[in-house]
């Protein structure tokens, strides 16, 4: 990767307030082609708000977001999806009345570049993503009937079906056991090998350490650290943000 390459995603001096509360405070960041950027921080740090701003469900009060060098602030969520930005939701949003297959088909039909035009081809690619995330045995079931871990898999499969260039993963591992976490880590690696750039929010530090090229830490909406995972995770300020400071 050359130093002059245009980043896939860049946020410049982003700020978002909800009434009096500053959720994101003057945050800048960038994500290079095929890079995995870990985003961590205590609850309420503004991580999901940042993902919402990137996917377009909320707009920044100040600052700009660039996708491959082009500003995307004026684009609606579906237009950003057509560019190749896809996300999962922390509070999972399956289409409850639809089967697992149909849930994923929607992603394939309307994803990057406007999506697949033929239902048959969309089904074909949806089946592949369902296989990839290990949900094939549930393919005909209604999304409502899935348990927690399978819902996570479905959320992942739906996001992948858009065939994204940039994938925003908002706590896809929360609530999974150790074996399941390892599985998802493996899946994220495989997605990355396909050339997808990834922004991953996670509280499972082991996963962040294994997956991320760089880590960025938010605390009360401010960026307090950024850099190579092991260095950032041992940074005293980061430790203090997570655990609090020792009383003296």
């Amino acid at each position: 990767m050359s130093a002059t390459a245009v980043p896939v995603l860049e946020g410049r001096r982003l700020t978002k307030r909800f009434q009096g509360l500053v959720s994101i405070d003057d945050v800048s960041f960038s994500l290079a082609e095929n890079e995995v950027l870990g985003l961590i921080g205590p609850n309420g740090a503004g991580k999901t708000t940042l993902v919402n701003m990137i996917s377009g469900t909320i707009r920044a009060d100040h600052g700009s977001i660039f996708f491959k060098g082009q500003p995307i602030d004026h684009l609606r969520p579906f237009q950003r999806a057509h560019l190749g930005i896809s996300r999962t939701f922390q509070v999972m949003k399956p289409f409850p009345g639809l089967s697992v297959l149909d849930n994923v088909v929607v992603g394939a039909l309307f994803g990057t570049g406007g999506g697949e035009t033929s239902i048959a081809r969309a089904r074909e690619s949806a089946r592949e993503w369902i296989e990839f995330t290990g949900l094939t045995h549930r393919i005909g079931q209604s999304a409502e009937a899935l348990g927690g871990p399978d819902r996570k898999r479905l959320e992942f499969a739906k996001a992948l079906a858009l065939n994204p260039k940039l994938l925003l993963l908002d706590e896809v591992m929360a609530g999974l056991n150790l074996v399941e976490v390892d599985e998802v880590v493996g899946l994220v690696r495989k997605v990355r090998e396909r050339g997808v750039s990834i922004l991953i929010i996670e509280h499972v530090m082991k996963a962040i350490r294994h997956l991320s090229d760089r880590v960025m830490v938010l605390h009360h909406g401010e960026k307090i650290a950024e850099g190579e995972p092991s260095a950032v995770l041992s940074d005293p300020r980061v430790v203090a943000a997570y655990l609090g400071t020792r009383r003296t």
Binding site: F78, A81, P94, V106, G114
Partner: peptide
């Protein structure tokens, strides 16, 4: 019908 916001982020105009 199932979830309009999710549909939007999945690329549905």
């Amino acid at each position: 019908r199932e979830d309009e916001d999710a549909a939007g982020t999945m690329g549905v105009n």
